[in-house]
Computed example of a mutant assay.
Amino acid sequence: MNSFIKKITGIFLAGMMMIMVGCASTAKQESAGEYIDDTVITTKVKAAIVNEPTLKATEINVETYKGVVQLSGFVADPASSSKAVSVTSGIKGVKSVKNDIRVK
């Protein structure tokens, strides 16, 4: 009976360790805090684009992952694409900007 309890305890502890390792933040998964930070950055970037009169906010999509902002969509001219990158780079918390905006 004593060895049975030791086996069950060992299996339980091994399972708990696997769960803890599986929940750790990896390069492909954000922690809750990182997700919230990225949401705040995305909101600030979208607000900055809306407040920029030369940009059409409905044409530009914004996604953030671990502080890296990806801009996508279509704009009328290359100057708008450059302006969107410039506005985004000025936001606190933005580590880098990936520009996937295409000119129509």
Rank of each mutant, 00 (worst) to 15 (best):
D100P: 00
L55Y: 12
G93I: 05
K66Q: 11
K66W: 03
A48R: 00
V87A: 04
I8D: 09
A14Q: 11
M16W: 04
A57I: 08
Y65N: 13
G33K: 07
A57L: 06
K46M: 03
V75Q: 02
V87C: 05
E63V: 06
A57R: 12
E59T: 11
G73T: 01
S86A: 14
A24N: 12
M20L: 10
Q70L: 05
S81I: 04
A84P: 06
V75A: 09
V68F: 04
L71V: 01
A76E: 07
D38T: 11
A47V: 14
D37N: 15
V75E: 02
A48P: 01
F74V: 13
V94P: 09
I11M: 08
F4I: 04
S80Q: 12
I60M: 00
L13S: 14
K46L: 06
T88I: 00
V50K: 09
V62T: 10
I91S: 06
S81K: 07
I11G: 09
N61W: 00
S86C: 05
A47W: 11
A32D: 04
E52I: 03
V97W: 02
N61D: 06
I11L: 13
I91F: 02
A32Y: 13
G15F: 15
K44C: 13
V62A: 02
A57S: 15
A57E: 10
P53H: 00
K66D: 09
A47Y: 12
I91V: 09
K44A: 12
I36Q: 04
L55R: 07
T9S: 15
A14T: 15
I49G: 02
F12L: 10
I19D: 09
K6D: 13
T43D: 08
K83C: 04
G73A: 02
S80V: 06
G10P: 14
A79V: 08
T58E: 13
D37Y: 08
T42H: 08
K56L: 11
A79N: 14
K46W: 03
A14F: 14
S72A: 10
M17C: 09
A32S: 07
T43M: 12
T58Q: 10
K44M: 11
K56N: 15
D100Q: 07
I19H: 14
L55A: 05
T42P: 13
L71C: 01
A84L: 00
V94D: 01
D38R: 07
I91Y: 02
I36R: 08
I91H: 08
E59W: 08
K56A: 12
V69N: 00
A79L: 02
A76M: 03
A84G: 03
G90T: 10
E59F: 10
S31T: 15
V85H: 02
L71I: 05
T26V: 08
L13Y: 11
K83Q: 06
L71G: 05
K66S: 05
T39P: 03
I101P: 00
D100S: 12
